[in-house]
Simulated assay, not measured.
Amino acid sequence: MPDCLVNGVRLHFEEHGQGQEGRAPILCIHGMSTSALVWGPSVAKVAALGRTIVYDRRGCTRSERPQPYATNITQQADDAAALLRALDAAPAVVIGRSYGGEVALALALRHPETVRALVLLEAGLVNLVPEAKAWAEGVMARTLAAAEGEPSDAAKALVHEILGEGAWEKLPPPLQSMFAANSAAVVAEMRGGFLEAEPEALSKLGIPLLLVASAESPPAFRHVVAAMGAAIPMARTALVPGGHMIDLAEPAVLEFVATVVREPNP
């Protein structure tokens, strides 16, 4: 699969499906500690709807990790915009999970011409809910503390916090290896801070948007999704079963994407 030089960093990306006249491309942005590999066979279901691009964000797995490594959501969003332009794939329907959802939202706010619609799978815009922000700050503190003892433990600590006790042991060994190898990226992304967007800015988003929360995730995510839904006039919300690793091919997601890839640009 090819690489693309974006903002001075080599990003690994894959393309699936076929572009069609009148259909927007689809871009998938993975969350913290993972890579495009985490989407698995669900990519094929999304790609049945049109040209689908998945990539490893800066610092993750098959993409370049500059040394010393520091990053933030603004930089990651600018990477996504540059990748879409380099691949002649803008405006796109952008799907982001967790931290990748924050990147996707920042992309829409900073580079609105690159985004036709958004799907945010438990994007953690925690500044909207004080209790959620306090919870997320605790997760960050404990994860960074784990990394001080053993750098590769950052991802393990994060999985424990977000997916629950015993979740790490249930992961297949290849996923454990991928997560552990991205521990340096976890530390850099956490130190880069959360996305902060005020309701006024969110209210100006004039694109179709689907907010997805999971019934079994930590409650903070559901509270944030509810607050985002109240702030964004065009937002739809969906509650799905399972935990934080919401499937890219959830029926609610596929139904929404099937509609918005065919809509004219707003």
Rank of each mutant, 00 (worst) to 15 (best):
residue 7 N to F: 10
residue 14 E to G: 01
residue 15 E to S: 12
residue 26 I to E: 00
residue 31 G to Q: 00
residue 31 G to P: 00
residue 34 T to A: 12
residue 34 T to H: 02
residue 34 T to N: 05
residue 36 A to V: 07
residue 45 K to Q: 15
residue 48 A to Q: 09
residue 48 A to H: 06
residue 52 T to S: 04
residue 54 V to G: 01
residue 62 R to T: 13
residue 63 S to P: 03
residue 68 P to A: 09
residue 70 A to F: 11
residue 86 A to E: 13
residue 89 A to N: 04
residue 89 A to I: 10
residue 90 A to M: 03
residue 91 P to L: 11
residue 96 G to T: 02
residue 113 E to W: 09
residue 114 T to S: 15
residue 117 A to E: 01
residue 122 E to Y: 07
residue 129 V to Q: 04
residue 130 P to Q: 12
residue 133 K to Q: 15
residue 143 T to S: 03
residue 145 A to V: 11
residue 151 P to W: 08
residue 154 A to M: 00
residue 155 A to R: 00
residue 158 L to Q: 01
residue 159 V to W: 01
residue 165 E to T: 14
residue 166 G to E: 06
residue 179 F to R: 00
residue 179 F to S: 02
residue 191 R to N: 14
residue 195 L to W: 08
residue 198 E to G: 13
residue 202 L to I: 03
residue 202 L to D: 03
residue 203 S to N: 12
residue 204 K to S: 15
residue 206 G to C: 11
residue 207 I to T: 06
residue 209 L to N: 00
residue 210 L to H: 00
residue 214 S to H: 11
residue 215 A to V: 13
residue 230 A to H: 09
residue 232 I to Y: 04
residue 238 A to G: 10
residue 241 P to Y: 05
residue 248 L to E: 05
residue 253 V to R: 02
residue 256 F to T: 04
residue 260 V to H: 00
